[in-house]
Design a protein around this nucleic acid. Sequence first.
DNA 1: TTGCTCAGCTTGTTGGTACAAGCTGATAGG
DNA 2: CCTATCAGCTTGTACCAACAAGCTGAGCAA
Lengths: 255, 255
Amino acid sequence: MNKQPKYRQVADVLRREIDNGIYAPGARLPSENDLQQRFDASRNTIRNGLSLLVSEGLITSSQGLGYEVKSHEVFELNATRFENLTFPQNGDAYSTDVTNAGRRPHQTFRVEMLPASKDVAERLKVPAGTKAVLRFCHRYVDDVPWSTQATYYPSWLVEASPRLAEPGDIEEGTTRYLASRGIEQVGYFDEIAARMPTPEEARLLEIGAGVPVMLWTRTGYSVDRPIRCTITTFRGDLNRMNYEIGELSARGENA
Amino acid sequence: MNKQPKYRQVADVLRREIDNGIYAPGARLPSENDLQQRFDASRNTIRNGLSLLVSEGLITSSQGLGYEVKSHEVFELNATRFENLTFPQNGDAYSTDVTNAGRRPHQTFRVEMLPASKDVAERLKVPAGTKAVLRFCHRYVDDVPWSTQATYYPSWLVEASPRLAEPGDIEEGTTRYLASRGIEQVGYFDEIAARMPTPEEARLLEIGAGVPVMLWTRTGYSVDRPIRCTITTFRGDLNRMNYEIGELSARGENA
DNA sequence: TTGCTCAGCTTGTTGGTACAAGCTGATAGG
DNA sequence: CCTATCAGCTTGTACCAACAAGCTGAGCAA
């Protein structure tokens, strides 16, 4: 006898019905009250089952509205083209990609100087606590928060390239600006991790329960040392990262 | 007045105490009963707060034992070196990496033939439902489930390379075997996504609540068409993926 | 010493109640 | 006609109670 707790049975039944399309993406689930009668269970038990599905990222709940099946459209982000080594364009790639997808980009921007955290200092190969310039970007697509991007530059680099520390945008892109100052990025090292959002991240990206974030850390190198460290935080449900390696003429292009 | 619900206050206080090291990784939290008295709240309210932290991936709970602060050691997986185009080694890379990290690798393996799912068929550029060979690998590190890897080969390729469909291991590695049959992988396209595990994935990887999975889809290409599609599923809390792009002689190597 | 049982701790499950808070559509009032 | 209010739906928060199930160590028995 495979006796599962009642709240798990509730979750299993509803999950299967969602998978089978009985409740399509965007559709509303029956109310807790209805489900109580259907499954002959208390409201707490039903809520336990539903909260399981919420934490799986399958449904969302909103007070006064009910439970809704999530629909997932993902945004493809090309990490190798995002910042082409031969044609650096930096932040522009985001606006271009989003516009090409028929969506409306929007971003806020700020610059500050602060001591580098341990993680950042390690990657920039400077002592922990050393001052670094942070250029921070909060990005939206169609007014939905999409990602945050924090780029740190070591102080030795800022002395040689003062515009990095100025609050304004850098028209030609930072990578190109640095190249014009004789500092060329010749390679980068990417790290990708996934975890549940901190409350701070959940707030900035307006993430509900059951949605992980992806952390994309890119450390850029000149010929002799690291010159920047960019940490991008995405909503995991709305983004997918792509890398193109080697010869891919056989792939063609999607739409 | 910033009035937060009591269960959130509980979670916030405990989260801060965990961040500050008052409860170190691996340490046990006070019991629900103790916390009831400390916060003057009912057991359900305490449980709500704790379950928030569980779904954030900060702590785990086990019946009879209590709540424990999670410790996170991550395993670095080098995606560019994992399968070097010039020195293909395929599955061996995993065993080598794990052994080098001083851990003990272990894997189970199976081969089957089945109709390709829509996602796989799209990537292999064959009609959906076409037969494909699946080589499936379930990997452990120190007897802890670590990842599952499913590689699909299109049937036209299997006809030219029959050993792909045989259940046994391919000693020299599949990429090298294919090269010996005149089919060379000259490039690949990687897609990385993160989401909460399905119950099936949670079972295979023994994932508790609050831990996302990373999905790594690698499509390999010969000069004129896709030759394979590998879908790897990781525990998000134990793995980090790395890409090395361009010239990185300045990076050196960690330890 | 060794091995077993069990009391007493822990969290897990399920039931109940009550009120707060958010949303929507009907309806009364201008 | 337009607008404001409110009844009646939804989920959110908070409490209580009881028993099930898993783990550990004390202490008894061989």
